[in-house]
Every structure is written in C-alpha cells, then in structure tokens.
C-alpha cells in the first residue's frame, strides 16, 4: 500500500516537470512582458533602466538557463520570489492555497449532495416527470457558464431587493460563520456546475446496475427497494462516478479561478489572475505547479478509493 503510493508519487515527477516546462515557456511567449509594464508604471524608458531591471530580476539570462535555475530551486523547495512584491512565491501560495482548497471542498460537497440523490432518484423514476425535470436541470447547469450565473447572482438581487452576497473575506479561523457566509455563494455556483455531469453519470450507472442479476437476487431475498438500492446498488454504481469526479478536478480549479474573481475571494485563482495581468512569471509557474500537483494527487486518491469501493481491485 505504502509502496504503491510512493511509486505513484514518484511517477508524477516527470509529468509535473514537463507541465512546468510548458507553462514556463508559454508565459514568456505571450505578448507584453513584465519589464515593459514595470517601466511604464515607473515612468522610466531608457535602455539603461531596462537592462538594470532585467539583470536584477535575472531575466537577462537565456530562457533555458532561467528554467534550470528555477527548477533547481523547486527541487529544493524554493519557488522564487514575486517580481513585483519581492515576497517568496511559497509564502503567497501558503496564504492563498487553503482558501481555494476550502472553496473547492465546499463546492465538492455541494456537487455531491445535489448530484447523488437526484441522480439516484432519476434512475429509480426513469421516464417520469421527476426524471425529466432532473435531466433538464442538469442540461441547463451543463450549458450555463458559472461566470454568467455568478454575475446574475451579483446583479439581480441587488437590483430587486437591494441585497448582494457578502464580498468581504474573513479567515475561517477568525470567524467561521462570517467566512462561510462569504464562501457559500461561489461554492454553490461552482458545485452546481460540477454536479451536472456527476448527476447524469450517477443516473446512467444506477440504471445499469439495477438491471444486474445480483439486484434480482437481492429482491428475491425480500429486501425492500430502499435496502436494495442503498446496500446493493449504490456502491456498484458509484465506482465510475468517483472516476468522473476525479476527471473533473481541473474543471473545479478552473471554475474557482473565475468565481474567486467575481466574489473577491483572495485565493489562488485571484493570485493567478493578478500574476497573469502583471506577467509575474514565478508566481504563475508556482500556481500551475501547485494546481498540477493537486490534480495528480486527486487522481491518485481516486485510484486509491477504488480499492475501497471495488474488492476486485483491492486483491490485485
């Protein structure tokens, strides 16, 4: 078990390094560079100033030298410093990651509490009005981008009822209720967009499982339909759903970036957005490294959960 996890984590290393290379290069290829921005902001424009800043930031080196210097630092746990704030990137990540993690976690809870019961209900009541309603809802959630929903939630209540969602961030440890009051709206929006596919998958898998022979065996024992579903169908149906949730992890993170911007949540998404506008290369690379690592870890967790859900996997 431990060996398995270690092996998997080591296997992640090349993937992460390759991904970081792509981010590193592509950031430097997009038009507009950090020196221009800095010069403009400080009303400087001479070539002398430019060279001085480049040298100070280490951007005068050839790109591959910059990359190897950076990756060398990464392996020692040093992600460099922000070009603008001059604070260590690790510090900025440490401050923002827990916030984004909280948003993602809340969204996942929302997604599962919406998707699983409705998906199961939809399967049990196949082709009834309730089923159609649930499927239409999931189609709508799939089609509507969460930034649009987010904007609606911001604008309409304030126009109609002079109410708008809280936009002031309070750290969870300072005042949990205040914190949740702020986080819950983006978490619900993110969770709903995540629930759409999960709900459809749950419905499809439950329909598939309910046709299986062992379900007939369970019924022949005299179990009530509730027990048949809860004890015999659900776990079998959930195995593929867990994979889907893992596959949606990047979607979750992408959605968080947008919703953090709309709801002023000072998480990693907001950090990334600002860094991109300012061409703050080390911060961007740092965020992507963490995101990439996060996605891979989620997939590892998904694989591990198979062992728990599916005894066949456990015994291999």
């Amino acid at each position: 078990m431990q060996a398995f996890v270690t092996r998997r984590l080591l296997a992640l290393l090349p993937t992460l390094i390759f991904a970081s290379l792509i981010v590193f290069v592509s950031m430097r290829l997009i038009p507009g560079d950090v020196i221009d921005l800095m010069l403009a902001q400080n009303d400087l424009s001479t070539d002398h100033d430019r060279a001085a800043i480049e040298a100070a930031l280490g951007l005068d080196q050839p790109m591959h030298v910059q990359y190897f210097r950076w990756i060398g630092g990464v392996l020692e746990g040093d992600l460099g410093r922000s070009l603008w704030q001059n604070t260590p990137v690790t510090e900025q990540l440490a401050a923002t990651l827990p916030i984004t993690f909280e948003l993602g976690f809340l969204a996942l809870i929302v997604a599962l509490t919406v998707a699983l019961p409705i998906g199961v209900y939809s399967a049990l009541k196949q082709d009834t009005l309730g089923d159609y309603a649930a499927r239409s809802f999931s189609l709508v959630m799939l089609a509507i981008p969460s930034f649009w929903l987010g904007t609606l939630v911001m604008v309409f209540p304030s126009v109609w009822w002079r109410w708008s969602p809280a936009l002031e961030y309070t750290p969870f440890l300072e005042d949990p209720l205040q914190n949740l009051a702020h986080m819950i709206v983006p978490a619900i929006l993110l969770g709903l967009s995540l629930s759409a596919l999960t709900m459809r998958m749950t419905r499809t898998m439950m329909l598939e499982v309910l046709r299986q022979d062992y379900i007939r065996t369970a019924r022949a024992k005299g179990l009530s339909e509730t027990l048949v579903v809860a004890r015999h169908a659900l776990r079998n149906g959930l195995i593929p759903v867990v994979t889907l949730i893992g596959l949606q992890a990047p979607l979750l993170i992408g959605g968080a970036v947008i919703l953090e911007q709309i709801f002023v949540v000072p998480g990693m998404g907001l950090l990334l957005l600002e860094a991109v506008f300012q061409r703050d290369y080390p911060v961007i690379s740092g965020v992507f490294l963490v995101v990439g690592f996060g996605v891979l870890v989620i997939n590892l967790l998904v694989d591990l959960s198979y062992g728990w859900l599916d005894p066949k996997v456990r015994h291999q």
Binding site: G222, N236, L309, K312
Partner: peptide, 24 residues
C-alpha cells in the same frame, strides 16, 4: 410478498457469476 421472499420461498438463479453482489 417481501415477507415471503427469501423466507418461505427462496430462489436460486442460473448465473452464479453475476447473481452475487461483487462488492459485498
């Protein structure tokens, strides 16, 4: 009927491979 199924009338099916629940 549920009270009778599995108690006073029991059934054995054709497919032993798929008639048992794989996760229990």
């Amino acid at each position: 009927l549920r009270a009778i199924r599995g108690d006073r009338i029991a059934m054995i099916f054709q497919e032993p491979m798929s008639s048992l629940n794989p996760v229990l």
